[in-house]
Amino acid sequence: MTAADTPAIAVKDLSVVFGQGREAFQAVRGVSFQVREGETYGLVGESGSGKSTVLRAITGLAPVTGGRMEIFGQPLGHDRDAAFCRTVQMVFQDPYASLHPRRTIDATLSEPLIIHGIGDRQERAERVLKALADVGLGPEFRFRYPHQLSGGQRQRVAIARALMLEPKIVLLDEPTSALDVSIQAEVLNLLKRLKDEHGLTYVLVSHNLAVIAHMCERLAVMQHGRFVEEMTVEQLRAGTPREEYTRNLLDAARGYDREKAARFAAMEALEEE
């Protein structure tokens, strides 16, 4: 197989079970997908359906109980080494939890460089300032603490941190749901530009179908730990999904409507019976 055919990410029959015995809960139930190098692959679907867990399984943060995962053809075992961290980075859904409350932004952004022994003090400072500028934050933010930032500012710091090691694959869990629409546009433009410049590969989780349509070539729709369908962005734009669940998502994305809400509730109640 040539390098060009080797997918950046290959996941086969992944399953994740939290807890044991009576408490066991299967959050991911046999999920398979491949992401080509340079592609942006979207994950959408029901809240609690396992999207974050799929990303966390790749980064070694979820209890995988079955299946295989490969990064550029390399099978992933139990542990993730330094080389993995340089290749794959993740932006977490919850910017509060992912930033250490008692570390300045400078410390947060320098940390990966220090761990991987990159640069001297001066070089690190320059890279921190450049990373801040890349996500639209001025130098005045460098020595602030997370609680001194607005929600959107925190998320931009989280994105900046993921990019510090110049990874090849970035797993983005709701990277813009805490951002205002203009910063969202800036961050999405930034992510696209970085992808073009560095040939990055993204997996993007978002509830915002317009964001998915804008960024992704293909996407998967999840419900109850499974993929209910995989589709191209053209199918999404044309509004021609195969599954009723996906059609409901598209319908809901058109805006709030009390009657529509009642219809969804009734459908879910039926499904539960």
Partner: peptide
């Protein structure tokens, strides 16, 4: 902001 659109509604 963290809910899928059908649940959000």
């Amino acid at each position: 902001s963290a809910l899928d659109v059908t649940v959000a509604m």
